[in-house]
């Protein structure tokens, strides 16, 4: 199937691959109606001044001009960058660590049990997690100040302090083990041929060495996948800042996703919200493209 076929004229290629197109058809049809059409409509609005009602006034690139000279937007970018920096490193390393630990268990039953439990954590409603952390972060009645006092740090304002708010929101992702990422990486580790592992043991390879030279390269595809997914998720998410701090104090925890939501639903500036969305989309495309190009991996 690979390699040495002569190039066919286009229509021939298309006909040859008619199965391929047929299989793709249901997805494309569904996406065209329920994804592409609304998105194009929404993005179109970034060229308008739209209050969410029935009238929209075309104003060309005005929204974009306003956005690129908007200090709040840049601050939100700075904030989300910190999110990404943390979530996409710790958030990828932790599932990797857990997956590796799972593999070092001798009992397959224990492994199965742990695996199921981690997957089950996906059912926790995020509103519960947020509630707990908001309570923990309360300087007066919560537990965080008590915890850090053990470490010798004085009482903090956490969500209510300008310098601590963003960090507090980021840390509320503890323990940063996303079950889906875990499953993906675990599946990748599972796919490593047993023969390779045996060979390395026979050669007297230490565990750490094996991890670095066998495990890591062979799951780099999955790691890349998880990295991209976590970047995309971090870029778009705003639920936590919305509920925990409303973007504050000031705009210390404002992220682009929240800024977009507020522009639309609080300030009736849906055109501007679309503009933010548009710019975010371009940014995410760029990051994904760059990651794909920079990190070569086995299966792609």
């Amino acid at each position: 199937m690979r390699g040495t076929e002569p190039r066919l004229p286009l229509w021939r290629s298309v006909y040859r691959a008619k199965h391929a197109y047929a299989f793709l058809l249901p997805l494309i049809a569904l996406l065209a109606i329920f994804s592409y059409y609304p998105i194009v409509m929404a993005l179109k609005m970034s060229f308008y001044q739209w209050k969410g009602g029935n009238e929209a006034i075309f104003n060309g690139l005005d929204n974009f001009r306003e956005l690129f000279s908007d200090p709040t937007f840049y601050r939100s970018l700075g904030n989300v960058f910190r999110f990404i920096l943390f979530d996409c490193t710790v958030g990828v390393l932790m599932p990797l660590l857990v997956a590796e630990l799972l593999f070092h268990l001798r009992s397959a039953r224990l492994q199965y049990a742990f695996r199921t439990m981690f997957v089950a954590t996906i059912t926790v409603p995020s509103v519960v997690v947020i509630l707990i952390w908001v309570f923990l972060y309360n300087p007066v009645v919560g537990g965080m100040n008590a915890v850090v006092s053990v470490l010798g740090i004085g009482p903090q304002l956490w969500l209510g302090g300008t310098s601590t708010a963003l960090g507090s929101v980021i840390l509320s992702g503890f323990p940063f083990i996303n079950p889906i990422y875990l499953l993906i990486i675990f599946a990748g580790l599972q796919a490593i041929p047993g023969s390779l592992i045996e060979a390395s043991v026979l050669e007297g390879c230490g565990r750490w060495r094996r991890f670095l030279s066998i495990d890591l390269p062979l799951v780099s595809g999955q790691l890349k996948l998880v990295f991209i997914l976590s970047v995309l998720h971090a870029m778009q998410s705003f639920y936590k800042p919305l509920i925990m701090t409303g973007g504050g104090p000031g705009d210390a925890t404002l992220v682009p996703g929240l800024y977009m939501f507020q522009s639309g639903f609080s300030r009736n500036d849906f055109g501007y919200a679309s503009t933010i969305g548009f710019v975010m989309l371009i940014a995410m495309l760029a990051i994904t493209f760059a990651t794909n190009k920079l990190v070569r991996s086995e299966n792609d």
């Binding site: 972060y137 309360n138 300087p139 304002l157 956490w158 969500l159 209510g160 302090g161 504050g248 104090p249």
Partner: peptide
Amino acid sequence: WAPGSIAM
């Protein structure tokens, strides 16, 4: 006000 009021 109690500390942390800003976020309450």
